[in-house]
């Protein structure tokens, strides 16, 4: 990031693209496309969606599922990462299992989860949780295994018991990287939540977008798309700000 000075210039490109799109749609001559709408119509649909609360309600539904899954999967990944990072023998024991399960795309579990949970939050949360485990596990494990060996010696020389060693040395040392993992997992959680909604689950932003598409309202569909982008962007910016506040001092 090169600061605020670059912002006007950086905004010039998207602004020009939007104008070009608007112009093309209008000059294209009465295009009533099923897939496209001019930016002005998208903006109107966005304003209406925000005004009547439908976008906000859908956002809350998606975020609830995404955050629920993130917490569940993130906690599991964190725990396993801590365990595997501190006890290498355990990591070796489970490595083949983990390497076999990890590449399974989370969305490939939709049919299975559908049988188990039916439509609704539990379906979506379980899929998101599965996807969120891996970034947390992999990053936490490597962060914990990479704790400065000198600090481990300091802990040994002071005879810190295992709990204190984890809580006072290992976890704080690994925390900045664990937080990066959490940010990644949060991004993944949002993507997977919306994907599950688009694919099967009748709730949230993904479902709203699919409905707009199927009822031939392209402006509304694109408004959803823009809004999903905004939600993802805000999420990332907020987590980055937290990261900078929490770890900026000594990193």
């Amino acid at each position: 990031m090169s600061g605020l000075h670059a912002l006007p210039r950086a905004l010039a490109v998207p602004a020009l693209l939007l104008i070009a799109a608007e112009a093309a749609m209008r000059l294209g001559g009465g295009t009533t496309s099923d897939a496209l709408a001019p930016p002005s119509a998208v903006a109107r649909a966005l304003a209406i969606g925000l005004g009547d609360g439908s976008l906000l309600a859908a956002s809350l539904a998606t975020l609830a599922a995404a955050i629920g899954g993130l917490m569940l999967g993130g906690a599991l990944g964190l725990l396993l990462g801590l365990l595997f990072g501190t006890v290498p023998a355990l990591a070796r024991l489970f490595s083949i299992t983990v390497e076999a399960i990890r590449p399974v795309p989370a969305v490939a579990l939709i049919p299975l989860a559908l049988i188990l949970f039916g439509f609704g939050y539990r379906l979506e949360i379980s899929i998101v949780a599965f996807a969120a485990i891996w970034p947390m596990l992999v990053f936490t494990q490597s962060a914990v295994a990479g704790v400065e060996p000198r600090l481990i010696e300091v802990a040994r020389a002071l005879r810190l018991p295992l709990g204190a060693r984890l809580w006072k040395i290992v976890i704080p040392f690994a925390l900045p990287r664990i937080f990066v993992a959490f940010r990644l997992a949060a991004g993944v959680a949002l993507i997977v939540a919306v994907t599950v909604e688009i694919a099967v689950n009748p709730l949230g932003l993904g479902y709203g977008m699919t409905m707009a598409q199927q009822t031939l309202r392209p402006a509304e569909m694109l408004a959803y798309l823009v809004w999903i982008g905004v939600v993802g962007w805000v999420l990332n910016v907020a987590l980055l700000a937290v990261q900078r506040r929490a770890f900026g001092r000594f990193m």
Binding site: R150, L151, V154, L175
Partner: peptide, 21 residues
């Protein structure tokens, strides 16, 4: 047979032996 608290160690690489946080 193990480190003792009445034996203190000053390491050369102070930059790594201190808790940065």
């Amino acid at each position: 047979v193990a480190p003792r608290r009445d034996v203190a160690v000053v390491f050369q690489d102070y930059g790594r032996a201190l808790l940065p946080w």
